[in-house]
C-alpha cells in the first residue's frame, strides 16, 4: 500500500518524485525571476520619472530648444530654493530668491556655497523642479549640479546655473521652483 501504491494518479512513487522535482525547479526559477524583478524596478523607476517629468528628470525626448522663439507675451516666475542637506558642513543659498522670465530665453542664476569645515570637501547638488511634471520643460544648459563641486577648507564661491524654460510649458503653470539639496560627498567620494 502507501507510497508504493501505483494507483495514486496512476503514477508510481518515482514518477511522483520526478513531477515534484520538476515543478519545484520551475517555481525556484520563478522566485529568482521575482528577485531580479525587484532590481529591475530601479532602472524602470528612472524611466518612469523621466517620462512623467518628475524631480531631477532631464528632458530627453522633448522638442529641440528653439532659442529664437522667445515668448515675450508670457512671464513666468522661477523661484530658487537651497537646502544644505548635511547640517553644519555648508552654507548654501541662492543669490536671488526669484527671477521673472520669458519662456525660450536663456537666463543665469547663481547659488553661493561655502565649506564651513576645516577640511577640503566635495559636495553634490541634486536638483528638483516643481510642480511635478514641469521638469520636462526646464532645460538646464549648464549647472553646478552636473558634477561634484570641490571646496578647499573654508572656501566659498558663486556657482552658476543656466536655463531655458520651454515655451511648450503648459499654460496653467505660471510659477516654477528650482530646488537644490546640497549633499556633502566627502565620505562617499573616496570610493
Amino acid at each position: 500500500m502507501n507510497t508504493e501504491d501505483p494507483n495514486r494518479d496512476g503514477l508510481t512513487r518515482e514518477q511522483h518524485r520526478k513531477a515534484n522535482r520538476s515543478l519545484t525547479q520551475r517555481l525556484l526559477v520563478f522566485t529568482a525571476g521575482s528577485f531580479a524583478f525587484g532590481f529591475a524596478l530601479v532602472p524602470l523607476y528612472g524611466v518612469l520619472c523621466k517620462v512623467a517629468g518628475i524631480g531631477n528628470a532631464e528632458a530627453k525626448a522633448g522638442p529641440a530648444i528653439v532659442r529664437e522663439a522667445v515668448d515675450v507675451n508670457r512671464t513666468i516666475t522661477v523661484e530658487f530654493i537651497a537646502n544644505p542637506a548635511t547640517v553644519g558642513s555648508y552654507e548654501f543659498y541662492p543669490e536671488v530668491k526669484s527671477l521673472r522670465i520669458h519662456p525660450g530665453k536663456l537666463y543665469e542664476a547663481k547659488f553661493f556655497a561655502r565649506n564651513l569645515t576645516r577640511m577640503d570637501s566635495v559636495a553634490q547638488a541634486v536638483p528638483s523642479v516643481s510642480p511635478g511634471g514641469s521638469a520636462l520643460y526646464f532645460h538646464k544648459t549648464e549647472c553646478f549640479c552636473f558634477s561634484p563641486q570641490r571646496f578647499r577648507a573654508g572656501e566659498g564661491r558663486d556657482m552658476p546655473v543656466r536655463f531655458i524654460v520651454d515655451p511648450q510649458l503648459p499654460a496653467n503653470v505660471d510659477k516654477l521652483t528650482l530646488a537644490y539639496a546640497f549633499y556633502d560627498l566627502t565620505q562617499t567620494a573616496a570610493r
Binding site: 528577485f35 524583478f37 525587484g38 532590481f39
Partner: peptide, 13 residues
C-alpha cells in the same frame, strides 16, 4: 513567491 523576493531585493539594496 512573487513578492517576498522583491522584499529581499529591496533590503539588500
Amino acid at each position: 513567491i512573487a513578492v517576498m523576493p522583491v522584499l529581499a531585493g529591496s533590503v539588500t539594496m
